[in-house]
């Protein structure tokens, strides 16, 4: 099963197996990754599953849709590599993806 590395705000590195098809947010929540709050559960309604994607992986991801883009603009400290992890679906070619969880979530 492909794996994703989450760097938690407390400095701990979590390597998690993520089944193809589910979102990064779901995997993070199921395993209790610190800092991925994910209040709305993937409805793209809260911006509390914000992560920074390792820039080398950006080209591999589908770009964010307008709804996600709008959410990210006012998320906590957005950067060019910001994504909502609920909008990133796992695929086989994302094996090894690394994301950093910000120290805060929400607007």
């Amino acid at each position: 099963m492909p794996k994703v590395v989450f760097l938690q705000p407390d400095g701990i590195r979590r390597e998690i197996e993520v089944p193809v098809g589910i979102t990064l947010m779901e995997a993070a929540r199921q395993h209790g990754v610190v800092g991925v709050v994910a209040q709305c559960g993937g409805a793209c309604a809260c911006a509390t599953c914000h992560v920074y994607v390792d820039p080398t992986w950006l080209g591999t991801l589908d770009p964010p849709e307008e709804m996600e883009q709008g959410m990210l603009e006012t998320a906590w400290e957005p950067r060019d590599n910001s994504r909502l992890s609920c909008q990133v679906h796992m695929t086989a070619n994302l094996n090894g993806l690394q994301v950093t969880v910000p120290s805060r979530q929400g607007g």
Binding site: C44, A47, E66, M67, E68, Q69, G70, M71, E73, T74, A75, G106, G107
Partner: peptide
């Protein structure tokens, strides 16, 4: 309605 930017700005 279908406007995430306004919504996020309004929260603050």
């Amino acid at each position: 309605i279908n406007h995430s930017k306004d919504y996020m700005a309004a929260r603050k």
